[in-house]
Every structure is written in C-alpha cells, then in structure tokens.
C-alpha cells in the first residue's frame, strides 16, 4: 500500500491540483458565466509562487497565499472589464486573457525566465498540505450548494434578468465568481509549481483550458463532487489507457465522445438519476412518485421565477 502510494504520488497530487483547476472553471459556470480566466490565474499563481520562492525563499503557505490573493484581485478587476460580455464572447475574451498571460511569461525576461521558465523552486509544501487545502475548498463550496444561496445561484444561472428584478445581486455575484475562480486557479497553479519545482510558459496553453472544461463537463457541472469525479477520471485515464498502447489516444477520444452523448448532466448527474430511479421505484408504493428533495427545491425555485420563462426566449 505504501509502495503504491509512493509510486503514484505524482498522480495522487495531480488529482487534487486538477480538482482545484476544474473548480476554477466550474464556479463561474454554476452562475452561467462561461469564463476560462481561472486557467490564466493558474499561470499567474504558478509564476507568483515560483518567483517568491526563488527570490525571497518564503515558506510555501506565504507563496501560495500571495499568489491566491493576487489572482483574486486580478480576477475581480477582470470581471469589471468584461462586465458587458456574455456567452461565447465572454469565453473568447477569457481565452485571450489566458494566452496573453502565456505570452507575457515567455517575454518576461529574467523575472519569468523567458522560454526556459523557472526551475529549482524548492519549498516545504507537502501532499498533506495540498489535501488539506482541497478539503477546506470542498467544504466551503458544499455550503454554497445548499439552502438559500444555492437557490440564488441557480436563479442567476437560469434567468439573470428575472433574478435582478427579484432583488438578487447578480452583478456582485458575478464579480465574486471571477474572484473565487481566480483564487482557485492560482492555488492550483502555485501548488503545482512548488510540488514540481518548475514552471514554464508551455504549460499555460489552450490544452489546459480544454482539460479543465472536459473535467467539469464530464464529471458534472453543478457540484464540487462532479469536478472531483472529473479530475479523478482525467488524471488517471492516461495511465490506465497506457495498456492500449498505440491506440490509447483514440480510445481516450472515444471515451470523451461517449460521455458527451450519454451523460448530458455529467457522470454525477447520471449517478443521481439512477439513484433517484431506484429510490422512486421503492417509494412508489407509498406515494405516487415522491419527488426527491432536489426536484422539490427546483420546482419551488421555478415557481418563484414564474415557471414558464425558464430557459425560454427572451
């Protein structure tokens, strides 16, 4: 067991880092905001932590804390800038943000190490520390997935205009999402840079955006559990598929296609639906289809929103 743990330490750590990265996309997505800025923050965080560690030899938590804080502020300011953008236009603007960060890193001269990147950032960050951070993040996010806050988030996602008229602070919530997304992305980037002791501009690219998006969509976009499922799958899948040899990349693509077709609400959604079906069948004798908590809540919300307008044409 200990042998297995040691041999796979890199993948175990990567699972948690990918989890944070996925969350940085998922948090805005839950509000209906299509932003990839979290991936840019990943780069920002990685470089901030590496520079602080290399130049000032600060302890890991200071380096990570500074990276998170900086990225949260940048995320907030960025949200002010893109306040008028929506949908895929917003997605494009955030992709531009990510790519510009990568170009800045390449051209940062001595500060960022140019195309070489930075290396030798030895720190005292441990795997335990990474897990602890992830647990805290998961607990905090779980709190946003229940009670009135959850309903407000869903209202903003389904119909921002109506939510606004109902007195929900759509704009502050959006700004908050950008800041949180920045913090999460930076946290993942900073910890990755310190664990691997290096960071290079090649790491911050479009494929990281795609990875983060795929983890969230295939895992499940509504809950932190979905992000976690996604990060486990996409961290370990390549190693599992290595046995497929030459055709592993083809199999990988086919799995993604099948997931996109057959799991419209992600793996988490699929599990939930199956669970509800089972439970529904059992309780069918008692009440004619007892609605699950979730659906009851959703229904209440929809009534509050005026039902019919949901997802409709404005």
């Amino acid at each position: 067991m200990i042998g297995w743990y040691e041999a796979n330490l890199v993948l175990i750590e990567a699972t948690f880092l990918n989890f944070l990265l996925a969350l940085s996309i998922q948090v805005p997505l839950r509000l209906g905001v299509f932003s990839f800025a979290g991936v840019g923050s990943y780069g920002l965080g990685a470089y901030t932590a590496a520079i602080l560690t290399l130049r000032y030899d600060v302890p890991a938590f200071v380096a990570i804390g500074a990276a998170v804080l900086l990225a949260a502020v940048v995320g907030y300011l960025f949200s002010l800038l893109v306040a008028r953008l929506n949908g895929l236009y917003l997605a494009m603007a955030t992709i531009a943000f990510v790519l510009i960060i990568a170009v800045l890193a390449t051209n940062g001269g001595e500060l960022t190490g140019g195309a070489n990147g930075l290396y030798g950032a030895l720190s005292d960050l441990t795997t335990g520390g990474v897990v602890a951070v992830c647990v805290v993040v998961a607990v905090l996010l779980a709190l946003t997935e229940r009670g009135p806050l959850r309903r407000r988030i869903e209202a903003v996602r389904e119909d921002p205009e109506l939510s606004l008229s109902m007195g929900i602070g759509v704009v502050p919530m959006r700004q908050m999402a950008f800041a949180v997304s920045g913090a999460l992305g930076a946290c993942a980037g900073a910890m990755n840079a310190l664990l691997r002791t290096t960071v290079s501009p090649e790491e911050i690219n479009f494929h990281l955006i795609v990875l983060a998006l795929t983890m969230v969509i295939i895992g499940g976009s509504r809950s932190w559990i979905g992000a976690f499922i996604g990060s486990v799958i996409f961290t370990w899948l390549p190693s599992v598929l290595a046995s497929a040899g030459r055709w592993q990349d083809v199999v990988y693509g086919v799995i993604i296609i099948l997931a996109a077709i057959f799991m419209p609400t992600g793996l988490l959604g699929l599990v939930q639906t199956l669970y509800q079906k089972l439970r529904g069948r059992r309780s069918a004798a008692v009440t004619a289809e007892a609605p699950a908590d979730d659906t009851a809540e959703e229904r209440a919300l929809l009534q509050a929103l005026g039902g019919e307008s949901r997802g409709g044409v404005q």
Partner: peptide, 15 residues
C-alpha cells in the same frame, strides 16, 4: 456537450 463531443472527435482524428 457539443463542444466536448467535438473535442473528443478531434482527439480521435488527431491520434
């Protein structure tokens, strides 16, 4: 889902 399905298709063709 369409975006992700396209990503999957792309990786199959690329591979």
């Amino acid at each position: 889902q369409i975006v992700v399905g396209g990503i999957g298709t792309a990786s199959v063709l690329l591979a």
